[in-house]
Amino acid sequence: MSTEPGQGGGDAALDEAMRERRRLIGVAYRLLGSLADAEDVVQETYARWYALPPRQQDAIENVGAWLTKVAGRICLDQLRSARARRERYVGEWIPEPVPGSAELISGWSGGAEVDPADRVTLDESLSMAFLVLLEAMTPAERVAFILHDVFRYPFPEVAEIVGRSPAACRQLATSARRRVRAERGAQPPTDRHSRIVREFKQAWEALDVNAMIGLLDPDATAVGDGGGIVSALPHPLHGSTPIARYFVAIARRGGAGVQILEETVNGRPGLVLRQDGAALAVLAFDIAEDRVTHVWAVRNPHKLGPWMDD
């Protein structure tokens, strides 16, 4: 369904609605972990906006708030049905990686008063490690936490989306925040993260198992997502030695012309495997104390659309 201007409402309201698109995609992506699903949500949100008679559009005082409420409720419905869909998914499910920084799907983050200790920046909320953490939350926790702590929506507005009281939404966000604090350590500066990823790449290209083991935390975990379409790790792989041997074995089996390139993945340094311009895999890393603690490798071609060369 088209989301082009020209249907219903005054020009000012229409312009205001269209300016919200990037922010809405940013909210929906963080809630769903899928850029494709986020774009579908925003498409549906605008379809509902256009379906309103001009008089109803003109009566909406805050178009952005109305659009966010609609998009948030659609996301909440999708999150509630996601568990069943994930059970049918072949292999491990990893959030869809996006290229570049948070500017791609950023958005407005002003409004609610948030304790500085509770703030989560747009860049932090885009990282693969953060998105994976969100997967363990209940749908209501995830919505309350993202909308309040990341996008700074006040709890009364969050409550209208979640369908609970502002006090209950505050408790949901607190519970989610506690989970994040317990599982997320301090992140290294980007330059240090980049250096470690570069060393991992060099060791991988050199087929140097020992060097890779030295870069991996002894309790590191590697997860692959092929979606049942292409081969990938069927289950998470644990331990520095098994992970290093697995990646070296992949490199030895790789076809001619496969390149390992350093690129920004979800706002952090990562790696992309390319062959003849096509993306074969996107790798995101979590790093603590100069060791790689997690590697997420997305190979499902349905999740690599944004990475394909024009």
Rank of each mutant, 00 (worst) to 15 (best):
G33S: 12
V197D: 09
R119Y: 04
N62L: 06
A279R: 07
I213N: 00
V27H: 03
R170S: 13
E96Q: 15
D191Q: 13
T293V: 12
F285P: 00
D58A: 15
R22I: 05
I196G: 04
A82F: 10
E289V: 05
H235F: 14
D149C: 13
N300D: 15
H238T: 14
N266Q: 12
A144N: 06
L76H: 04
Q43R: 15
E39Y: 06
L32H: 02
M128D: 10
S2M: 11
R291D: 05
Y50G: 12
P97F: 11
L283S: 13
T174W: 01
D310L: 15
I229L: 04
Q187M: 07
G8A: 15
M128P: 07
D77V: 11
Q56R: 07
T241L: 06
S175Y: 01
I260N: 07
D310G: 11
L237Q: 05
E44I: 12
I74N: 06
I105M: 12
V70D: 02
R22P: 02
L147G: 12
P99Y: 02
A82T: 11
D11T: 08
D217P: 03
A279N: 13
Q259N: 11
R274L: 11
P218Q: 08
Q202E: 15
D40I: 02
G110F: 13
V265T: 08
G277K: 10
H235K: 14
E183R: 10
V143H: 05
A222I: 00
T3L: 15
W93A: 12
A281Q: 12
H302P: 02
P236R: 13
A251Q: 08
A28T: 14
L261C: 13
E199D: 14
Q202P: 04
H235G: 08
R86D: 04
